[in-house]
Nucleic acid binder design. Structure first.
Length: 415
RNA sequence: GCGAUCGUAGCUCAGUUGGUUAGAGCGCCGGUUUGUGGUACCGGAGGUCGUGGGUUCAAGACCCAUCGGUCGCCCCA
């Protein structure tokens, strides 16, 4: 008989049990609670889409499209892709589902995303994000609301201490183009001193040189011009309204003039909440304004702004969530007591108490195992003189014990 | 795609300059005291030391390859 080989889990996927699953659930629950405070509707969008949805959204980033996405052909020969981000799918839904009628639309969702990457700390091939978007709102107030929402979420998760909001503006299209030209000129003038990677970036994605990690690039990146000198009056006013709003709402922020986005449809505000507690993956929550995206996808000109945050990364930063302990652990110390056990456990659960039962393995050991469940109340069912004998294990009487005892008395059990 | 580092029981890990039959804790299984107690005590099962080659009288340990984990680079929508 050949040994059956168990299929291995896919690289970059996770199985969660216990602490990591509790952290995950707590992050999602907190998000769902806070998002209601800000009037964001829950939406659901598909996990896979036509490849064109993401290819269009990612546009020029051919590397990302060709190497980083999970793309496959279905049986009908259509090219499909597992979503690598939320925004493109939501933008598609906004157009194809006629959601324009609800603009400005505040929506929130969360779920799995897929990117074909080398896993490392806080980086997986199937990972999970929270996502919030405001679509159809051109005013800086939308940016402010989204940022205040994000800030409150991090505060309620208890991780605002080691996390700072870094903020930049990419200006409007005119500002951005002018800045980009100036940066290319600057980097071209220092071409010889740039790292090999950055020399390649110069043609492909010059803005990215600004946040290069290579020490050879730092002096050149640091001396590069900020966007400020290239901002139009409108763009400057927009950014000022955003920062004024944050100040008024009591949200701490830092300007990071090196914070950029590679894609052209990003305009105005770009932001990241960053930490040094996650190794090389410093960004906890990031987003910005993408006024050009929906138009790029064949929809009407539609301003929009949004953010996303990695659930796993947030889960690694929070304190271990307090899990409500089990109320009752019940040891069934004799198989003859099983019918009574089902009667009792059903009664307690229908009264809203959490109960678990130990009724397998050596009868002698069941009581020990029940104690190890660390429930508020431990009780045992034994068989004595032809009937069930109920016993409690408690040092002192307390409310939970009275509650359990009252329920058992209703069923006619003494003890 | 590139680099560093680690793979010993179900889990967390010991294992000396290479030297008899590879260990512990937890978990699992069984036993002990017939008790308002017992999260105890005693015992047992469980390992081709990731896999395949090589060096050696002798390899868990050294060398090579390969697979996997972790971390970093690239990328970051």
């Amino acid at each position: 008989m050949a040994k059956i080989e168990t299929p291995r889990p896919i690289r970059g996927t996770q199985d969660m049990l216990g602490d990591s699953a509790d952290r995950f659930a707590h992050v999602v629950a907190t998000f769902d609670r806070v998002r209601r405070l800000y009037g964001f509707q829950r939406i659901e969008v598909p996990v896979f889409e036509s490849t064109a949805v993401f290819a269009r959204s990612l546009g020029e980033s051919t590397d990302v499209v060709s190497k980083e996405m999970y793309t496959f052909e279905d049986r009908g020969g259509d090219s499909l892709t597992l979503r690598p981000e939320f925004t493109a799918g939501i933008a598609r839904a906004y157009i194809t589902e006629g959601w324009q009628q609800y603009a400005p639309l505040k929506v929130a969702t969360h779920g799995p995303l897929f990117r074909y990457e080398r896993p490392q700390k806080g980086r997986f091939r199937q990972f999970h994000q929270l996502d919030a978007e405001i679509i159809g709102a051109a005013e800086p107030g939308a940016d402010v609301e989204l940022l205040v929402f994000a800030d409150q979420l991090l505060k309620e998760l208890g991780i605002s201490e080691g996390v700072t909001l870094t903020l930049n503006t990419l200006g409007d299209a005119a500002s951005r183009d002018a800045w980009r030209d100036a940066l290319v000129a600057h980097f071209n003038a220092h071409m010889g001193d740039l790292s090999e990677d950055s020399r390649a970036r110069l043609t492909r994605n010059p803005l990215r040189i600004l946040d290069s990690k290579d020490p050879r690039d730092r002096p050149i990146a640091d001396s590069a011009p900020d966007i400020d000198a290239f901002l139009t009056d409108e763009a400057r006013a927009f950014f000022e309204k955003v920062t004024q709003g944050l100040d008024a709402a009591g949200v701490a922020w830092e300007r990071n003039a090196r914070l950029v986005r590679g894609l052209d449809y990003y305009r105005h505000t770009a932001f990241e909440f960053v930490t040094d507690r996650l190794g090389a993956q410093g960004t906890v929550l990031g987003g910005g304004r993408y006024d050009g995206l929906i138009e790029n996808m064949g929809g009407p000109v539609t301003p929009a702004v949004g953010w996303a945050a990695g659930i796993e990364r947030l889960g690694m930063l929070i304190d271990a969530p307090q899990i409500e302990p089990l109320k009752v652990a019940m040891a069934v110390e004799d198989d003859l007591a099983m019918p009574d056990a089902w009667r009792v456990i059903s009664k307690l659960r229908h009264k809203g108490m959490s109960v678990d039962m130990i009724a397998t393995g050596s009868p002698r050991k069941r009581f020990d195992k029940a104690l190890k469940l660390n429930a508020k109340v431990a009780l045992s069912l034994q068989w004595k003189d032809g009937r069930v004998d109920v016993r409690y294990h408690a040092a002192t009487w307390h409310d939970d014990l009275f509650e359990v005892k009252a329920a058992l008395t209703e069923l006619g059990y003494q003890g």
